[in-house]
Design a protein around this nucleic acid. Structure first.
Lengths: 207, 207
DNA sequence: ATAATTAACTTTACACCGTTAAGTAAGTAA
DNA sequence: TTACTTACTTAACGGTGTAAAGTTAATTAT
């Protein structure tokens, strides 16, 4: 039985090797520039071997997509211990933008690339749910202590996510440098995030 | 001289034909699926002819990028006559999201695709400036009547743009349908936009 | 022990892609 | 009529994702 076990192990190892190579190339050069052939070259296997482990290119990058969410979760996890809901919301926004700016390729893959969404299809996207679930709960907790009175929790959560995502997305795709003065553009992500939080705080303080 | 003029006219016509074909294919099938060869097929010229009129593929789509901004401008122009600045801001947000949802491929090209930004490089991006300039002026006008007191006009404008862009971007890339309940997802763009405007209104009403 | 089967991987090939260099045919100018 | 220019095409290079068929070695069955 040990032979079969070794083989099973080797299959898992090769799968991991493929993903390691894919991750390295992807983080260095982005999605478009990373080809199945590049990955195969890097691990010294033939390109078609990769198709024995993944359905297609999107399937490979869907695995990285999931890695991205696992990483985001690592960023978010410490915030579970922030007891004040609004402080937690503020920390969440900062951590989210930090994650995005420090892992732009991952962020792109997770939220702005058309690519591996075909792969995930109707699937559960549990990791994505978890992150959004944390935001949802945080907003709910804020409402429990008097913030955001009378607003729909789900819609508000989505809106807050949109706000912060918009900031990161515009910055990553370089649509702001063209339109802002240099002084304003410096640290614009931090400035805009602070602006959002300021607005949320002033809007509806707890009675 | 008339022959030279006719030739000049024909060159302009062919350029326009290329762009017409590119636009049709692009709006039907998106950027990745639209190839130089497809465009050439459609107009019954050889692929290489296109390179006599455009530097490369990005250069073709940069022309469409500009068309997109011209179209957005058409959407925005009527709002110049809305005298109340905050009403104008509200209308602008709605018009912007309407434009995005009715022209998702254009919107993608303009704001979320890496593609033709290489082409525009250090160039002026005047059309983009105009749209942002209108927002900037509207926010300034809002501040003149007491809204958004003490906030940096440029940062706030960028933040507002980010908010609305985030809403459109998440919707277009389908990152919300996975995470929202069906009921909330219905009309989420309109709901989230309304939410943003509600927050902006409640946050800092004029004295 | 030998034959049949299976697993893991490779070779080859197809149909695309963006782009360049060289070739061609028609029109213009000398 | 000859030389040149313009507008376009053909052919080709080096790349892509992916499917089908081939190979080789290990395992199982007889």
């Amino acid at each position: 039985m040990s032979i079969a076990e070794r083989k099973e192990r080797q299959k898992i190892e090769l799968r991991a090797k493929i993903l390691d190579a894919a991750r390295m190339l992807f983080l260095e050069q982005g999605y478009e520039q990373t080809s199945i052939r590049n990955i195969a070259d890097k691990i010294e296997y033939s390109p078609t071997t990769i198709y024995l482990y993944f359905k297609d290119k999107d399937d490979v990058f869907y695995a990285l997509h999931q890695e991205g969410f696992a990483l985001l979760r690592q960023f978010i996890r410490p915030l579970e211990h922030v007891s004040n809901p609004f402080e937690r919301l503020k920390a969440l926004a900062k951590v989210y933008t930090t994650f995005a700016m420090e892992n732009t390729e991952f962020y792109d893959l997770m939220f702005t690339m058309p690519a591996p969404m075909n792969a995930l299809q109707k699937e559960e996207w549990t990791e994505g749910d978890m992150a959004f679930g944390f935001l949802l709960q945080t907003i709910r907790d804020c409402q429990a202590i008097g913030y955001f009175e009378g607003m729909d929790t789900e819609v508000l959560s989505y809106t807050v996510w949109s706000m912060v995502h918009g900031i990161c997305s515009l910055e990553i795709r370089g649509r702001c440098s063209k339109v802002l003065s240099d002084a304003t553009h410096e640290n614009i992500v931090a400035k805009a995030t602070a602006q959002v939080l300021h607005i949320l705080e002033k809007m509806n303080p707890p009675r």
